[in-house]
Amino acid sequence: MVETINLYKDYKVGKVLFPALRGVSVKIEAAEFTAIAGPSGSGKTTLLNIIGCLDVPTKGDVLINGTNTNKLSSKEKATLRKNEIGFVFQTFNLIPVLTAYENVEIPLILLDMTQDKKRENIISILEEVGLGEYINRRPNEMSGGQQQRVAIARALVKNPSMVLADEPTANLDSTTAKEILGLMKELNEKHKTTFIFSTHDQLVMDYAQRIIRLRDGKVVADKTKKSEGPGDSS
């Protein structure tokens, strides 16, 4: 359902051309729970951003459900993101003036849905992420883990076909990180939503069903586990 074909991405830093991706071709099927692993600077974030239509590749194509995103206008990309893709960021990126409920509501502003249905979806997803009692808290009244749960609820509330999470646990302690990963895994199994997340943390990788390793902008390993389970460290 997501396929990248020979992706290249160069960044210009001053006058120096920095290659972030150098020919990445991967195929990720629906409902997979995939980690993109690698040290910092290996191109994980760039790959996620390009898949999510937040950035454009220098060369190569991305197919999402068969649609080549290179051929879409910025408005069409916005529509694709609106309907198909949920994002979870390392820094949570909640809107500070809004409560948990209202933050989760934002993606639904754009969708054609009755108020009752919206309310039902928001409450149910916030309960699923374990924040049923915190719906009226603002971000600054919540812990990092709780904020990331809001962000996950926000990504999932519109029932997208995939969720892209860039280093979702990098700003969390290891216990909270485990909880968040557990939650993501649970939601992946329950909703059959594709999860693609980037990480450089071994602990987080262990949760993944499939690990795509990047180094210097190239895929160096692509491993699918037969049996999966938390805490199964190697």
Binding site: G52, L54, S74, K75, A78, T79, L80, R81, K82, N83, I85, F87, F89, N93, I95, I106, P107, L110, R154
Partner: peptide, 11 residues
Amino acid sequence: IGTLKAMGFNN
């Protein structure tokens, strides 16, 4: 603004 765009808001 970037976050809103990521969520599908257009310009």
